[in-house]
């Protein structure tokens, strides 16, 4: 009887408040499992800013900071500069990182902060009820884009990983998805490498994880996974943008 899978001790025993089928839960598990497998759960200090995943500070079984909207990379910088031997990470949504917090993530990368950022991109504002995010796709409807995002009105969606990968201090940048088990396994590898980037003191690491929002996309959890695969992946290609080498 070998255990193939059981709940990670990197998670607390609280039930997650996320909507049924929301893939935040999967990403929480991956972060928790990676911290346990790397043996750093006891050294980890996470930063959860405003967004659906702010309550990650209750779900991840390590020291956590709740941060103001968009400011997690700055808070994490403060933590890491005081505790360089600890493992510091941020867990941020797209409304947080790609909108109000763009300066903070760009400058954390620019300074080569030795922190790890998990960037969950579900192309919408979840917590506040489905407003358009900078990552909302062209034509995708949202409560503040009732006719669908129109490039002429507010531009094309922001490609964060491509942008961050141009910054030298960002030593590991990869975009992954969690829409099926195979991709979840790949996502976990990338998240592990992003934490290892910090452990080796290389510099800033960011993993962009494409994620679903069944409730605000107005889809069933299963259809949401299909929508992600058919619409998000073509615009947000899953690939590694920086793997410790030089900026391409």
């Amino acid at each position: 009887m070998t255990v193939v899978y059981k709940k990670s001790e990197g998670l607390t025993d609280l039930q997650l408040h996320y909507c049924p089928g929301c893939t935040h839960g999967i990403i929480h598990k991956l972060v928790a499992e990676v911290m346990v497998e790397l043996g750093v759960l006891g050294d980890a200090i996470g930063v959860a800013p405003v967004g659906c995943s702010v309550l990650a500070y209750n779900y991840l079984n390590c020291d956590m900071h709740e941060a103001a909207h968009g400011r997690a990379p700055a808070v994490a910088t403060g933590v890491k500069r005081v505790r360089p031997e600890n493992v510091v990470f941020t867990y941020q949504g797209d409304g947080d990182l790609a909108s109000i917090g763009t300066a903070e993530v760009v400058h954390a990368a620019h300074r080569g902060e030795k922190i790890t950022t998990i960037f969950v991109n579900n192309a919408i504002y979840g917590m506040t009820g489905g407003q358009m995010a900078p990552t909302t796709l062209i034509g995708q409807k949202a409560t503040t884009a009732p006719y669908g995002r129109d490039e002429a009105h507010c531009g094309k969606p922001l490609k964060i990983s491509e942008m961050i990968a141009t910054i030298d201090g960002a030593k590991f940048v990869e975009r992954v998805s969690v829409h099926n088990p195979a991709n979840i396994r790949k996502a976990k590898k990338a998240i592990k490498k992003a934490f290892e980037c910090q452990l080796k003191g290389e510099g800033f690491a960011l993993v962009e994880v494409l994620s679903t929002c069944p409730t605000n996309w107005g889809k069933t959890p299963i259809d949401a996974l299909k929508w992600l695969e058919e619409n998000m992946i073509p615009y947000y290609p899953l690939k590694n943008f920086r793997n410790f080498g030089e900026v391409k």
């Binding site: 930063v47 900071h65 941060a67 700055a74 808070v75 910088t77 403060g78 933590v79």
Partner: peptide, 8 residues
Amino acid sequence: NMVYGASG
């Protein structure tokens, strides 16, 4: 916010 993190 860095002060927030460092103090925390």
